[in-house]
Design a protein around this nucleic acid. Structure first.
Lengths: 200, 200
DNA sequence: GGGTGCATGTAATGGGTTACATGATTCT
DNA sequence: AGAATCATGTAACCCATTACATGCACCC
C-alpha cells in the first residue's frame, strides 16, 4: 500500500514555518507562491489541518472577528518541524507526467492541422501569461529580502522561467513545422484537383 | 461533476489507430512511445478496454497461443475514431503541476544545504538518463519513417528534449548557487568560531 | 439587489496506483 | 532452481477535486 503518502501535509507545514496562518490563508499563499509547481484545494487543506492538529504537528488557536467568521490560526510545533525535516531529507519521487497537449499533438494525424495549430497557439498564450506572472512573483520576492529563505524561493522561480521559456521556444518551432505541413497538404490538394479536373 | 473525464480512454484509442493491439501491447507501447509525457497502469488499461468494447468504440478478437495465455486483440471502430477526433478537438486542460523536487527546494531553508544539493544532483542524473532515452526514441522514429504520423511524434520528442535541456541548465545553475550559499555559511561558521576562541 | 471576498467545513464522486491471483515458458 | 516475460484481470485503497452548505460584509 504505502503509496505516495503525498506531500499535501508537508506543504502546509512548510508554509507554516514562515508564519502562523489560517486554512484560508494557506490556500491563498499556496496559489501565490508555490502555485506554479504545487496546488492544493480547500477540500484537501481543511481536513489535513485537522489531522495535523490531531497528530500534534500543528496547534490551532481561534481568532474571533467582527462581521467575518472566526479564523482558525495554525502554528507549527517542534514535532511538526521534525516531520518536515524528515520529509525534506527523502529523495523526491520521480514525477508521473501527464501532458494532455502533447498527447493531442502526438495523435495530431487523426485531426486537422488547424486543430493542432490552435492547441499550440493557445498554449503560447497561457504559458506567456504564466511567465509574466512568475516574473511578477520574482519582483515580489525581491521586495521581501528580509526573509532568510529568499534564495530558495528564487531557485523555484528560476525553474519556472527556464522551463516556460523552453516551452515557448518549442511552441514557436512547432508552429513553423505545422505550417510547412499545411503548405505541403495544400499543394498536394491542388495537384490532385488539377489532375482530377485535367490541370490548368 | 463532469470533472476531467480524463484522457485514459483516448490514449488507447489513439494508439489503436496505428495498429490493432492487446492490452498488454498497449501497456508496452505507452511506455516506449508516449511514456515521457503520459502513463497508464494495467489496472487502468484492462478495465478501460472492456468499457470501450462495451460502448462499441473498439472490437475484441481472441487470439489463441500455444503455451502463453490467450490474447485479446482490440481494433478501433469507426465510432471509436469519431470519439477520438472529438476529443482531439477539445482544447487541452491546463495542467495542475506537482513538482516535489521544487517543493523540497522551496523549503530548503528548513534542511541542510547538503540535502538540497543531493536532490538536485540526483535530478541531474535521472533527467540525463531520460534525455538519453528520448534521443534513442528519436532515432527509432527516424527508422520507421513509413508511418504518416512521424512528424507529430517528432514534435512530442522535441518537446521532451527542449524541456529536459532547460531542466539540466537550471540544475547546474542551482548547484552553483547552493555551493555559494555553503561557502557563505562556512565562512560565517569559522568567523564565529574564531571570535569565540579569540581569533588568530 | 446581486456579485465577490472572507471563512470553514463535509459529502459525493471519480480517477488511478498497487497488490494480489494465476500459470506456463524461457532465460540465466 | 529461480527470476523474468507473457498475459489478463479484480479488489482495495487512497488521493483529490468538485459541489454543496452557510452566512456576513462590502461594493457597484
Amino acid at each position: 500500500m504505502a503509496k505516495r503518502s503525498s506531500s499535501s501535509n508537508e506543504v502546509l507545514l512548510g508554509l507554516l514555518t514562515i508564519q502562523p496562518m489560517s486554512g484560508y490563508d494557506l490556500g491563498q499563499t499556496i496559489r501565490e507562491s508555490v502555485g506554479h509547481f504545487w496546488n492544493e484545494s480547500y477540500g484537501q487543506i481543511y481536513p489535513n489541518l485537522k489531522k495535523l492538529a490531531a497528530g500534534g504537528f500543528v496547534t490551532a488557536r481561534t481568532e474571533r472577528q467582527k462581521g467575518k467568521p472566526d479564523r482558525q490560526i495554525y502554528s507549527i510545533t517542534q514535532k511538526g518541524r521534525e516531520r518536515l525535516a524528515n520529509w525534506l531529507a527523502v529523495p523526491p519521487q520521480p514525477e508521473i507526467p501527464r501532458n494532455e497537449l502533447l498527447l493531442k499533438l502526438f495523435f495530431g494525424g487523426q485531426a486537422s492541422l488547424q486543430v493542432s495549430m490552435e492547441h499550440v497557439q493557445r498554449m503560447i498564450e497561457t504559458e506567456s501569461a504564466i511567465l509574466r506572472k512568475i516574473e511578477q512573483i520574482e519582483k515580489e520576492i525581491d521586495k521581501n529580502r528580509q526573509y532568510p529563505d529568499v534564495p530558495y524561493w528564487s531557485m523555484a522561480v528560476r525553474f519556472g522561467q527556464l522551463e516556460l521559456e523552453a516551452h515557448l521556444r518549442w511552441a514557436q518551432e512547432t508552429l513553423t513545422v505545422l505550417n510547412k505541413l499545411a503548405k505541403k497538404q495544400q499543394s498536394r490538394g491542388t495537384a490532385r484537383k488539377e489532375r482530377r479536373h485535367g490541370g490548368k
